[in-house]
Amino acid sequence: MNDDTRLRQLADLWRERDPVPDGLVGRMQAVARAEVDLLATDWDHELLELVERSTELAGARGTSTSLTLRYTGVDLDVLVRVGPSTDAPRIDGWVVPPLPTVVRPLHPDGSAAGAPATVGEEGRFVLVDLRPGLVRLALEPTDPQHASFVTPTFEI
């Protein structure tokens, strides 16, 4: 068996043993379409890059999980902790450096997923009473000289 045949066989095996999750293609199509729509408006936010994602057990009995996400952009780092999951999910966030910034939770289509919050002096913000589902955060410094940023979507 030559190498190409072997590699084709391996690809088939990986497709079978670690298949693409159900619905992934549809979710990615929706993400891409929503981004096209947003960019067609006067949306001018730089995309933050994900550098870390972890889930850990939380709650007194360790029955729920909280999700930690860390993003990075030019001159900006954002840490987000979601959950533990309840009926009204909450997000605790930290922004470095702690510039005065408005944080808006958005659904992928750009509509509001909850009330905005303001980053405090220590760089902390809290979003409460969010509507569950896919959200992304837009970070808009009050000083227009600083760029605005947006995270990719994540589920709450």
């Binding site: 990986w14 992934l24 293609v25 990615m28 994900l50 889930t55 990719p152 979507t153």
Partner: peptide, 29 residues
């Protein structure tokens, strides 16, 4: 997307991490 899935999973990411990475790739494109 299926090609990206397999490439990304080669880095031993969890399902959730892999999906985030694939999403970021499409947003970047």
């Amino acid at each position: 997307t299926p090609v990206l899935w397999h490439v990304v999973r080669a880095y031993r990411l969890s399902h959730e991490q892999a999906e985030d990475v694939v999403q970021s790739t499409w947003l970047a494109l």
